[in-house]
């Protein structure tokens, strides 16, 4: 049992060393350039080595049930120091942040973008009730709790939110380390993107803000302060935004869009449920 944890620890040290030695890699695509930080390599390496096809022999010992369980049970505690660090980033800038406090509150409404962008697309490609669960929000714990309470997780709405939860858990970090620099290249201000980083998931916020820092290092304290403040606000207001704004907006849009098209329930719907 103890030996198991030692293996896990040594493995973690090796992965960290590898990720840090790869360092930050920048790739350019025309006008856009993205940078992958060691944190992205760390999650990529551990996920790829954990793929069932690759997880053979000694790797099976590393990814033992006990070790995977340990990691998911205590991940939140391993993350706590990061949160403590964010507090120290907000404190010195609190006055400045409160000065534009209304902007922070206003941009919380931007989280409705999940419904506005996501729902039309979901309906267009033939999702129906799954779309309710998959577009209500980022599909983190808040949405999961709401949907499971209202529809249960076995329902189609529940499947929608669960799928989004799984996808977000697996690819959220990578996604946000890619989108942040692209938005910067489009011409958004780094302060605005820092605020937008507070999407409600700590790892996605960290991926986005860390990538922004990589691109604009002289703004490090502002980026961290703004991102953390916005994240905290999302943790406080997120539930209200969802229940009082996202839910009614989603219902309105859903009825409007499904009525005008007058499409019968598509069979694809049934297939997706399998």
């Amino acid at each position: 049992m103890k030996r198991n944890y030692v293996i896990l620890l040594v493995f973690a040290l090796i992965v960290i060393t590898a990720a840090e030695m790869i360092g930050t890699q920048s790739l350019s695509f025309g006008a856009f350039s993205i940078s992958l930080l060691p944190l992205a390599f760390a999650i990529l390496i551990t996920m790829i080595l954990g793929l069932p096809v690759i997880r053979k022999g000694f790797l099976k010992k590393i990814y033992s049930k006990a070790n995977v369980q340990f990691s998911s049970k205590y991940l939140i505690f391993i993350m706590l120091p990061l949160m403590a660090r964010y507090g120290a980033d907000v404190a010195p800038q609190l006055r400045e942040i409160l000065n534009v406090g209304w902007v922070f509150i206003a941009q919380e409404l931007g989280n409705l973008g999940t419904v506005l962008f996501g729902l039309p697309v979901a309906l267009l490609i033939g999702l129906r009730r799954e779309a309710i669960g998959a577009t209500l929000g980022l599909g983190r714990e808040g949405e999961l709790a709401y949907i499971s309470e209202k529809y249960t997780l076995e329902s189609k709405e529940g499947q929608g939110v669960l799928s989004l939860y799984i996808i977000g858990t697996l690819f959220g970090t990578i996604f946000f380390s890619l989108i942040a620099p692209i938005m910067l290249d489009i011409g958004f201000r780094v302060e605005a993107l820092a605020m937008a980083s507070g999407v409600g998931s700590a790892s996605m916020m960290t991926a986005s803000s860390a990538t922004l820092i990589e691109r604009v290092p002289e703004m490090e304290s502002t980026i961290l302060g703004y991102a953390a403040a916005s994240q905290l606000l999302t943790s406080f207001l997120g539930t209200f935004t969802m229940v009082f704004l996202a839910v009614p907006l989603q219902r309105f849009l859903y009825n409007k869009l499904t009525k005008t098209k007058k499409q019968p329930e598509v069979p694809a719907d049934v297939r997706a449920a399998e």
């Binding site: 206003a106 962008f117 999702l127 980022l138 690819f171 999407v199």
Partner: peptide
């Protein structure tokens, strides 16, 4: 998970980020 939710996820994630960035 269906591939359809995968596509939707891209728009959902982009939606919240772009939405907040525009308002900010």
């Amino acid at each position: 998970t269906s591939w359809k939710v995968g596509i939707v996820a891209v728009f959902v994630f982009t939606g919240t980020y772009v939405g907040s960035a525009l308002l900010s």
